[in-house]
């Protein structure tokens, strides 16, 4: 069953342009000049129950406009949008009961209160029964290791601790759909892994549909089978990570550690991407030259200590997709 349907979504904003200085402010009161910004320009996609989708794009691409529309806090200019069969902005309260939303940049917990008090308030806001609350709190406490944190005021938590508490806060009412907006931003490596593991668990064990927006490509590679790339208000690509790679480039990277760092290296079918000391990174198209052939040719000609082949990192793929779009 489709949890989320988005069809030809368009959103234009009127941005008032303000003139500089005192005189400009006075003129602004009388006559406003407006600039139209096309934030979404015909976005369509469908999400099935239990999918975990990465939604990525550069700043200003339309990511948060899409997420805000799905969350019901923004009314689009035109187009269709249904989440669990509801039009988000028409039935706000019924709709948001089905949502969990986590913003990495800001907390939804009350700053001066111990975490558990925020959770109790959210219990009453969402009308969670005492029995369910107890069960969920126990489960979340265990999964996210919240034990010692619950009685700590939020302002005393580290970023990683706060994030874990925020995840718990947005899941108390057991929403079938979860929006994560840069959940790992600013976290240390251990906390990042903990968050990713937890999100994976939610998705796999509890079947929660997740939309993840992030700039951290490791999040995407670790979690998402499907990636939607947006740029300039349009969807640039929608599919598996592998399909995205295939679409943008089929090249592989060959990384060589040479015996000698002064050695000059050259091959007609491979291009040197960068070189630091002994390490040389080459890129090549396996359709033009089979990987095995290239390796045997190079190792025959040059003294190589070590080598490995990899896909271009996802950052590279995305960056190229954006450049393609801009061109």
């Amino acid at each position: 069953m489709a949890h989320i349907v988005v069809e030809n979504l368009v959103k234009t904003f009127e941005v008032a342009e303000r003139q500089a200085g005192m005189w400009g402010a006075v003129r602004g009161l009388v006559k406003r000049t407006h600039r139209t910004v096309q934030a979404l320009d015909g976005v369509s996609f469908e999400l099935q129950a239990g999918e975990l989708v990465g939604y990525i794009g550069p700043n200003g691409a339309g990511k948060s406009t899409t997420v805000k529309t799905l969350a019901g806090i923004l009314v689009p200019t035109s187009g269709r949008c249904e989440v669990l069969g509801r039009v988000p902005w028409k039935e706000r309260t019924a709709h948001v009961k089905q949502l969990g939303v986590v913003f990495g940049q800001r907390t939804q917990l009350w700053w001066d209160l111990p975490v558990v008090e925020s959770l109790e308030l959210l219990r009453d806001i969402y009308g969670v029964t005492a029995v369910r609350y107890k069960a969920m709190l126990a489960e979340l406490t265990e999964r996210l290791s919240l034990g010692d944190l619950l009685d700590t005021p939020v302002r005393q938590l580290s970023l990683g601790q706060r994030m874990r508490c925020d995840l718990a806060a947005s899941l108390l009412h057991e929403p079938p759909i979860l929006f994560l907006d840069e959940p790992t931003i600013g976290l240390d490596a251990v906390s990042k892994l903990a968050v990713r593991e937890f999100v994976q668990h939610l998705n796999r064990e509890r079947g929660v549909t997740v939309i993840l927006t992030t700039h951290d490509m490791d999040d995407i590679e670790a979690l998402c089978t499907r990636v939607i790339v947006i740029g300039g208000g349009r969807i640039l690509s929608d599919g598996t990570l592998d399909a995205l790679r295939d679409r943008v480039t089929r090249e592989h990277w060959l990384i060589l550690d040479l015996e000698d760092e002064t050695l000059e290296l050259e091959d007609p079918d491979a291009e040197i991407l960068r070189r630091d000391g002994r390490r040389v990174t080459l890129r090549f198209d396996p359709a033009r030259v089979p990987t095995a052939l290239l390796i045997s040719r190079l190792t025959a000609r040059y003294p190589v200590r070590d080598l490995f082949v990899q896909n271009p990192p996802i950052e590279e793929i995305i960056a190229r997709l954006y450049r393609e779009q801009a061109a």
């Binding site: 019901g72 806090i73 949502l99 800001r106």
Partner: peptide, 11 residues
């Protein structure tokens, strides 16, 4: 932008 958070709650 914290008003968004209030809109995200069913109250």
């Amino acid at each position: 932008g914290d008003f968004d958070r209030l809109l995200l709650r069913p109250r």
